[in-house]
Design a protein around this nucleic acid. Sequence first.
DNA 1: ACCTGAACACCGTTCAAGT
DNA 2: ACCTGAACACCGTTCAAGT
Lengths: 177, 177
Amino acid sequence: MVRSDARENRARILAAAREALAADGSTSMNQIGQRAGVGAGTLYRNFPTRDDLLLAVYEAEVERIVAAVPSLLDLHAPLEALRRWTLDLVAAMRAKHGLGDALGSVAHQAANDRSHGPVIQAISTIFEAGKADGSIRRDADPGDFLQFTSALWRAASAPDDRAPGMLDLLLDGLRAR
Amino acid sequence: MVRSDARENRARILAAAREALAADGSTSMNQIGQRAGVGAGTLYRNFPTRDDLLLAVYEAEVERIVAAVPSLLDLHAPLEALRRWTLDLVAAMRAKHGLGDALGSVAHQAANDRSHGPVIQAISTIFEAGKADGSIRRDADPGDFLQFTSALWRAASAPDDRAPGMLDLLLDGLRAR
DNA sequence: ACCTGAACACCGTTCAAGT
DNA sequence: ACCTGAACACCGTTCAAGT
């Protein structure tokens, strides 16, 4: 039986972490604990490791974005839906700012692994629609496309946001000839 | 006047850092100092910040790679030279392993800024050769290409190295029609 | 002019003691 | 059953004292 205060604490920690990390990706665990109004022990009971906490915040964000796919496909042609969805993804990543970079290399890999399934699913859905109507080449691979988005959100944090131009180049590579 | 022991110390620190960081990107400053046989103060006199040290190691590596361009262009057609050069770049980054991920977001940006000039120069040289002989489209942008390489070396550290296939997709996008 | 290494503030994490 | 918060080992960085 989970005590109600325990359930509340978990939610409070996640909310505090989401806010604090968006502002500064290197916010310390103890700072997050204080902000959430819980002791360090409680923090670590819920998230045994700093990376576990970062991952949980990251995961919630990914889920939100993935959920947007179906309505985009209802409103736009596949390539256009892909363009908009990818720009949304990049914008969200940019807003999250420090989060991606705060993850160490191992945790970053773990984040990719966990989000891999849902995100690949999202991209595949769009690709399939494009292959069905002949606008996207048949050998286009969702996995490759996903990898490239990491370059896009790095480009998006530069002073001159190159992401849109780079994305167009990518989409050109996907278009059926 | 720079004392000879001071000059030696700087070199010893850089060497120790290069070796230690290749093995483990999170090696601590004090560990590097001990390995180099210098006190913490000496370490910080030469590199006022952990990121300064990481950056110096990173920079040396980039210089080595950039220097390889002319001979590649002597031996291969532009697109093939670009393919080989990029795979070399990715392999070197992979060997450096933790280094790229150990840099915080700010330092990572600084690293990109500093290496940007020389690396863009290298890519531009190859692009110009390709535009001259008609194998590379005229609107191809070296800056965009550079951004994509970051996605490649992330892909290269996955169990199934997707970098070669992804690179071929990219080169397809650059080819003149 | 340069070096050493103890010391400082703070980090992620643990664990005894409480309720 | 869950919580608090002092404590631990260690981090990046500083600075008095030496040569």
